[in-house]
């Protein structure tokens, strides 16, 4: 009886299906698909890539670029199907923007030699000629921010609002802790064990401030909760991954922005030459991938502070400073 259910449903949907015609994609359009675990406007990891793709789009002639995306692909099985389907539909570049998608790409990429795949954060392209892999060296930015924060607050207390203790959230925070304590500021760190719990994130920020921290930082899509607390209490926020200044124009000192454009440009120009991957990229200060966006528009920022940050970044690039403490 229940089987009948599904058959009838199938039948009716089939009729609906026949009414629609498949849309063929033009060949001269550069088609990009992006799969992400969060949203295009999460003020963090996903948004940084989406915005870079938007920039990429502007380098193409009108109508010569198509960007589609799948949000909320936190279930890896769904993401895998999305990756395969986009490749099937003939997208030129498929970006699997989440470290959990690596294994899926390893399986899928060999079946689509004509498609370029990119994924990150990761370090391996699994020997595949059509996978590019990228990794944000968040600890570099973290270290500089730690130093800047210590200087800005005159070695005041600093608070870090972390999500889950893993991935680039952890490497950023470890770098920050290291930078700040080298400069002589006490740092306290909280983790809410969730990427999305806004309310707990805001409670964590409040706790940091109750304990005397005036400058906070943190990562993940739940940081708007923390920024809101900083705003209410007239504190200072340092943002990571994407520009958080719009969240609190009076309170965000600086954001460390992931600018994927240099990496994307390289991937695209290699594709034009017929090379679809086989490269590993690091997002660092060196190639302008890690960028400071200072809130000079709304705040008075000591130029020395900016100079110091640039200097530290240069030293990290030159290998004179190691952002993470020696193990």
């Amino acid at each position: 009886m229940l089987k009948k259910n599904s058959i009838v449903v199938l039948f009716i949907i089939a009729i609906l299906a026949m009414a629609a015609l498949p849309v063929a994609a033009a060949d001269d359009v550069f088609q990009v698909a992006m799969i992400m675990p969060s949203k295009i406007n999460d003020y963090s990891f996903s948004q940084s890539m989406y915005e870079a793709l938007k920039v990429l789009e502007s380098t193409f002639p009108e109508g010569g670029f198509e960007l589609v995306y799948s949000e909320d692909m936190f279930n890896v099985a769904d993401a895998r199907e999305a990756i395969r389907d986009y490749a099937d539909m003939g997208y030129d570049l498929v970006i699997a923007h989440g470290s959990q998608y690596g294994t899926s790409l390893q399986e899928i990429a060999p079946d689509y030699p004509e498609t370029a795949f990119a994924w990150g954060n990761g370090t391996e392209f699994y020997g595949q000629p059509n996978i590019s892999v990228y990794q944000a060296r968040a600890e570099q930015g973290g270290y500089v921010f730690g130093q800047v924060a210590a200087k800005y607050t005159n070695n005041g207390k600093l608070g870090v609002c972390g999500p889950v203790e893993s991935g680039d959230a952890k490497t950023y925070i470890d770098g920050f802790k290291n930078g700040a304590s080298e400069a002589g500021s006490p740092v306290s760190v909280t983790y809410t064990s969730s990427f999305s719990d806004v309310s707990l994130m805001s409670a964590a920020a409040q706790t940091h401030m109750d304990e005397g921290a005036t400058l906070l930082t943190g990562t993940s899509q739940s940081i708007p909760g923390a920024v809101s607390v900083v705003k209410e209490n007239n504190g200072i926020w340092m943002g990571v991954q994407w520009d958080t200044i719009p969240l609190a124009p009076e309170n965000v000192l600086v954001s460390l922005v992931y600018d994927w454009s240099p990496i994307l440009n390289d991937i695209v120009s290699n594709m034009k030459e017929g090379s679809f991957g086989g490269r590993a990229y690091d997002l660092t200060f060196k190639d302008g991938g890690l960028k400071f966006v200072w809130n000079t528009e709304n705040m008075e920022i000591d130029p020395e502070l900016i100079a110091m940050a640039d200097d530290l970044a240069a030293k990290i690039t030159a290998g004179e400073i190691s952002p993470l403490p020696a193990q």
């Binding site: 608070g159 972390g162 889950v164 203790e165 306290s188 760190v189 909280t190 983790y191 809410t192 064990s193 969730s194 707990l200 409670a203 964590a204 706790t207 940091h208 109750d210 304990e211 921290a213």
Partner: peptide, 21 residues
């Protein structure tokens, strides 16, 4: 308990954050 565990994390009392949560 939620407020307490957050405070303990801020005070640097060493418990794994996930266990605290």
């Amino acid at each position: 308990v939620n407020a307490l565990q957050l405070r303990m994390q801020v005070l640097g009392i060493n418990i794994p954050s996930d266990i605290a949560m």
